[in-house]
Design a protein around this nucleic acid. Structure first.
Lengths: 122, 122
DNA sequence: TCCTCCGTTTCGATTTCCGAAGCGGTCACC
DNA sequence: GGTGACCGCTTCGGAAATCGAAACGGAGGA
């Protein structure tokens, strides 16, 4: 139940999700999360750190702990459901920036845009 | 992403979870959800109805649609993770009313306290 | 009739969230 | 040395979400 409370907060799941590809700094992570407010971001980060779901590297980036990785994996079925759900309630797909017809199920498991991104080059 | 928004709201996941054992009326469901406010409850209910995750029976109870069932099942890994998580961050278990040492992993799949509960008898 | 529970709505008070600005710091570049 | 861009993080006023309790009409049991 406590988990439902932790993840029921507004950006927790999203942060967990965006950290899947590797460590991210504060501002880059913020950008990925639809530019959420930094205040709430810090709050969520603190909660997640407290829950030992993420931890902070010496260079101050945030990374999923092993426990966090498991949580992220536990989120996979939900992500897959989300796709089916989207297809059910909105078969047209109002927002197909690029529409690969089918079999675009997206398995972003260990994959992802593995770009830890830090400092310049951006 | 829209799913993260739908389920990122304060009681959505909980409602989904509490409906796992069968249909429930408004007030019983409210009681199960830690007595959340009825206003927010109605709001969540509306959103979930809208998302076709739940629907309303002729006797006005709320029930998971097939799509909702799938969502609930997709939540299972997360629930299992939650147990491991609780054991990790709080190995003492501040709230073990009965503490079966291990192998008490709880598979509340089709199981649950199957008591649809309606009307009198309480 | 009275009492209980039901689903649902309304409304003021509290909490959370947002959004923008600002702080001190590092680093590249000129 | 100066400038500018990015960094992690904090503060603060206003907007939005949530709470909590009261109330409504209706169904049913005593």
């Amino acid at each position: 139940m406590a988990a439902l409370d932790l993840f029921g907060r507004r950006w927790s799941l999203r942060i967990l999700w965006e950290l899947r590809a590797g460590p991210l700094g504060f501002r880059p992570l913020q950008k990925r999360c639809d530019d959420m407010s930094s205040s709430v971001m810090r709050q969520r980060l603190t909660e997640l750190l407290d829950a030992q779901v993420i931890h902070q590297l010496p260079d101050s980036r945030y990374e999923l702990t092993p426990l966090g990785q498991e949580a992220r994996h536990a989120l996979n079925p939900l992500a897959r459901w989300a796709e089916r759900w989207a297809a059910t309630i909105d078969p047209q797909g109002a927002d197909h920036t690029d529409d690969q017809p089918a079999s675009r199920v997206s398995h972003p498991d260990t994959a992802g845009d593995g770009a830890p991104e830090r400092g310049s080059a951006d």
